[in-house]
Each structure stands twice: as structure tokens, then as C-alpha cells.
């Protein structure tokens, strides 16, 4: 066969072989990935989507550092049982500012895409310090050191700058005030509290998340957990009629 004959010659030329491999291997990615950046419908437009505050961003980085994503997904699929167990299915818009996304691939623990507001701050603090104090049979690791580790806030503006370069709409104002905003969000009585609401919107929650006066990693992580599923209200409005996609 001519094809095998051609291959017979290809096998004699290492560079041609490498080029053929590159060509064969490029097609799939080009067809499937490139359009995701150009087709507008890929990510829904939402009116109210906001960015993470510096404190929530710091919490998200702790979530990444501790590998919470290895046991928790943040992606509710369009399946009836998932929607009934966890809440409205996840929209692409919800993770549009997530560098990286944390959809996860394994549910050793439950999905937490809609966790925000489900439990009190105290519950989270107690649970993170020792999950078995709250859920006796839990196999989740304990994270007691979070409550004593001071939160590093000095370099948060650099983080916002990096994210803005990648397309997240942080303003000059947000960048300039990043470290103050982080401290103020966990200290609602402080002078800077008004600025946080002004910059990030009315829906931002300001609380002593860890219940302790000192700003710790626990504040940041709980602030992040409490905002999960709350950056936009779009998923809660649109879905109930949308039964076709549920199976």
C-alpha cells in the first residue's frame, strides 16, 4: 500500500518524523481550545459579577496551598441529583476570574461551589481547627495552625497587579489599597471599612471571620469560603425553568 510505502521512507528521517508528530498532535488542541477564546457564548455575561477582595484572594491562595481542591470540587454539573444536593449548577461566568480554576476532579468531601452563607463563621473556624469536633466521622484533615498564622498582606497589591495583567478588572484604586482593604474587611469597625464596600460593592461582607482580634490566615480562608457561589447571583435567577439540560 502506498501509505505504508510513504511511512517506510518517513522512518528513515528523524526530523520529518518529529514534524509529522507535531502536526498530528496539534489538530485536536487547535480545534477544541482556540474557539473557546473567541466564541462569545462560551462565558455568559452577568451584570453583577464582582472580583475577589484582597482578603478573599489571600484565602483562595491558602485553599490552593493546602490542596483543599484535591478533595473538594467547585463545579456542580447539570444533573438533577447534583442540583438537588448542592444547588444551581455552575456557570462558566462564575469562574471567569479564577486563575487557576478550581473545579476539582474528586469529591472525597462534598462540592463547595455554593458554600457561601451555608454555615456560620464560627462553624467554619471550629471545623477547620478540628473537623471531627463538628462532624465526628469526618476524614478531613485538621488545620489548627491557620488560626495562629498571621496573614501576610504586604504584597497583596503585587498580586492584584499580576491578575490585572492577566485580564481581571482590578482598578488602580483597588491595587493601591489592597493591603488596607484586606485588614479592614476582617475588622468592620476600622476606618478603612467604608473603602472596601465602596470598591467591591454592597454585597461584600465585612466581619471578624475568625472571631479573633488578630488578622490570621483563618480570616482569609473563611472569607473565601463564605464568598463561594456569591460573586454573582446569576445562577440563582436563571435556572429553575431550564430543566432540559438536567438529566
Amino acid at each position: 500500500m502506498a501509505l505504508f510505502k510513504a511511512h517506510y521512507n518517513l522512518e528513515k528521517n528523524s526530523i520529518a518524523l518529529v514534524i509529522a508528530i507535531i502536526l498530528a498532535a496539534s489538530v485536536g488542541g487547535l480545534v477544541e481550545i482556540a474557539p473557546l477564546f473567541t466564541i462569545d457564548e462560551t462565558v455568559e455575561t452577568t451584570e453583577d459579577m464582582r472580583v475577589y477582595t484582597p482578603l478573599e484572594l489571600a484565602g483562595r491562595n491558602i485553599y490552593i496551598r493546602e490542596g483543599c481542591y484535591a478533595c473538594h470540587s467547585q463545579m456542580i454539573r447539570t444533573l438533577r441529583d447534583e442540583v438537588e444536593r448542592y444547588g444551581p449548577y455552575s456557570l462558566a461566568a462564575e469562574s471567569q476570574y479564577d486563575h487557576p480554576m478550581l473545579w476539582g476532579s474528586k469529591r472525597t468531601g462534598p462540592d463547595i461551589a455554593r458554600l457561601g452563607g451555608k454555615y456560620s463563621d464560627d462553624w467554619h473556624v471550629a471545623h477547620l481547627i478540628n473537623p471531627r469536633a463538628v462532624v465526628p466521622s469526618s476524614i478531613m484533615p485538621a488545620y489548627p495552625w491557620l488560626a495562629s498564622a498571621p496573614l501576610e498582606v504586604d504584597d497583596l497589591s503585587d498580586h492584584l497587579v499580576a491578575l490585572r495583567r492577566l485580564g481581571v478588572p482590578y482598578t488602580e484604586d483597588m491595587i493601591a489599597n489592597a493591603s488596607q482593604d484586606a485588614a479592614a474587611q476582617a475588622n468592620p469597625d476600622s476606618a478603612g471599612a467604608g473603602g472596601v464596600v465602596e470598591r467591591y460593592g454592597e454585597a461584600t461582607t465585612l466581619r471578624r471571620f475568625s472571631g479573633m482580634p488578630r488578622l490570621t490566615e483563618m480570616d482569609a480562608l473563611v472569607a473565601y469560603l463564605q464568598v463561594l457561589g456569591q460573586l454573582t447571583q446569576a445562577p440563582y435567577a436563571a435556572q429553575p425553568a431550564d430543566t432540559e439540560v438536567l438529566q
Binding site: T42, M101, L166
Partner: peptide, 20 residues
Amino acid sequence: LPVSWTGAKSYPAFSGVQDA
């Protein structure tokens, strides 16, 4: 994109569904 050249932390270039 590294947050700074003197630290380990970086943010991946892609986000959300494209990143996935």
C-alpha cells in the same frame, strides 16, 4: 505570570473554562 521575580507564587495565564 509570577507575582514577582523574587518569589515562588505565580498566577496561571488562563482562567475559568479556558483554563479547565
